[in-house]
Write a protein that binds this DNA or RNA. Structure first.
Lengths: 356, 356
DNA sequence: CTGTTAGCGCCTTCAC
DNA sequence: GTGAAGGCGCTAACAG
């Protein structure tokens, strides 16, 4: 006899009677189900004697409350879906972890939504919350999963509790937790300026993402502030991947007047750039300094260890989840985006500008 | 008036009437709720004309079925919880991704369980499924979340659908998807043998985990097969971290008769070892070859790129989930563990034994 | 082909 | 301090 014979019951206890329900406990304790419920939820409403009897019956029956029923009754699932483009990207897991930490602390769980950058799947996750499989949704994708963003006003009304993290949709006024990407880029640039660099290249991220645009803008602004020109030749396309870093660096190195420093829009492309530079027999930071962005785990393990701008990823996750829980609790979200501070992490991949 | 005023309703549509229910649709279409339900679930049971009317009403009302109610009715959640020790570890996300892929294909979702190696939290996740928040549980932790494993027989009966991946509990006969760690270790060793190495060290993983023990056993077996002795001095403790790799390598390099190759129990410690070796002015693989285990994303991006034994992580996730879904479907799991093949990925960190 | 009916297991007034 | 009763929204018999 298999454990899994009866379809509707996910699992059976040995006694053949299925899982104990509240009714069973009530009968066992000689009270009504209402009393059992109260004992479990608000024990102070129940006399000590009854409470003890009920608790004993609960233990005896091996009773666990069925959240399915509770959820229906209360119209909530106590789970929040967190949607990322690619869980495999070392940037996201820590945000998820932060989100899960605060979720857990409040009795919520996190549903993972991996979209592989497919709008259809994004949409599917939205439907998950519309069908009440989740109470709300935290988006790390920077896209609103909707076919048409035209009728915003209407759309807005029907949107479930939504919080953005890292990415953001301007205009829309949805609660958002993120860093100031432009300012963070300026921080990176200032570090290079302090080391004497002036001819600084940028390996950009995919420019359909606002964070890439912001970082690029920060790069340009910093140059302007410093009274330096932004040369188009020094801005290399990239898409946040290792390979794009390799290729971008090759292009930059082929320049007649090559840069003495490179600011990459993320760590992976920075690491790619370092590889490319070293493979041409040049030294990092001896010949060229490289600074990254994000401070992923492996930034510390590269050779040389990567100087980078660290995002408080776990904190981003925690704050986003906290706002979510506030929303669900009827509290209104903070006005304006929550901007978290970044930190310059100085390691070995940046150094003084080499003498010309 | 905030969108979030009414506590029990996670969100409101603009019309103030709350979300449309099946009853609304039924009224709108002039049919019974049963017909609406059928139209949505088994359209072929309904006449074309009615179907059209119902569908129109659904659209008009902006109706989405409430899975909470459906779940209660059917006593299932259609979500599976996947428990990992540390989502931040680059090894896990891809397994999760694989699991999510097949889950999604069957209309299931994945709940993320991060334990931070805390048995209490493991237990909490088990309770999640016992309280029907999830239909089953995939464990990547190699531990049964139970206070006492003594009364196995009893415990066994009460266990929800459980599948192990990567790790496994011997004895217990629970469905498991994994690789043959000992054999994979031998594969790594054979590669080193072929390059002429004989004095080979091992940086072990934490020996309270069976996968570490198996890899160590494979290392020893391989030496024996080759007629070589296993020297205790060549076996360095480690715990799968970058730093433990650094320290282990330092100890090995300090040996009077140092090894010409190192087999690390995972990639992170291998990368640590490479760093330590290079920082002593030695070359990889010129002086010492290093081979890792797992083939994490960054294995390809280190300098030199890491030779390693690749686990089919995504496939592991997919298979584990497939078995889970079979279990839930009343099918019995495969007898014995499902063993997936590994693949030697030859990159630059291993080379011929240097001349003595 | 469609409607009626009866719950799924729990929580929550409303009485007593 | 406790019990009785109704209902959350949906689905699955069972009639018609």
């Amino acid at each position: 006899m298999s454990l899994q014979t009866l379809r509707p019951m996910p699992f059976e206890s040995g006694d053949g009677a299925g899982t104990a329900t509240m009714k069973d406990v009530a009968r066992l304790a000689g009270v009504s189900t209402a009393t059992v419920s109260r004992t479990l939820i608000k024990p102070e409403l129940v006399s000590t004697r009854t409470r003890e009897r009920v608790l004993k019956a609960v233990a005896e029956a091996g009773y666990t409350p069925n959240s399915l029923a509770r959820n229906l009754r209360k119209m909530q699932t106590r789970s929040i879906i967190v949607v990322v483009q690619d869980i495999t990207n070392p940037f996201y897991p820590e945000i998820l972890r932060g989100a899960e930490q605060t979720a857990q602390a409040f009795g919520y769980t996190v549903l993972m939504g991996n979209t592989d950058n497919d709008p259809v799947r994004e949409r599917a996750y939205l439907e998950l919350v519309q069908s009440r499989r989740a109470d709300g949704m935290i988006l790390l994708t920077g896209r609103l999963p909707a076919q048409e963003k035209s009728s915003m006003a209407v759309e807005r009304e029907r949107l479930p509790p939504l919080v953005f993290a890292c990415e953001h949709l301007p205009d829309l006024g949805l609660p958002t937790v993120r860093i100031d990407n432009a300012e963070a880029a300026r921080t990176a640039m200032r570090h290079l300026f302090e080391l004497g660099h002036e001819r600084i290249a940028h390996i950009a991220g995919p420019l359909n993402r606002i964070i890439s645009v912001d970082r690029l803008a920060g790069y340009c602004d910093a140059l302007t502030e410093r009274g330096l020109p932004s040369e188009p030749a020094l801005i290399a396309d990239g898409d946040f991947t290792f390979n794009s870093g390799v290729e971008a660096a090759r292009r930059l190195l082929a320049l007649a007047d090559r840069p003495t420093a490179i600011f990459a829009a993320n760590d992976e492309s920075a690491i790619g750039a370092i590889q490319a530079i070293k493979s041409q027999g040049l030294s990092v930071p001896g010949d060229i300094s490289v600074i990254g962005f994000d401070d992923i785990l492996f930034a510390a393990a590269t050779d040389p260890a990567l100087t980078t701008v660290a995002q408080p990823r776990q904190e981003i996750g925690r704050r986003a989840m906290a706002i979510m829980l506030d929303l669900l609790d009827g509290k209104s979200p903070p006005v304006g985006d929550v901007i978290l501070p970044v930190e310059l992490v100085t390691r070995r991949s940046t150094g003084p500008r080499p003498p010309a």
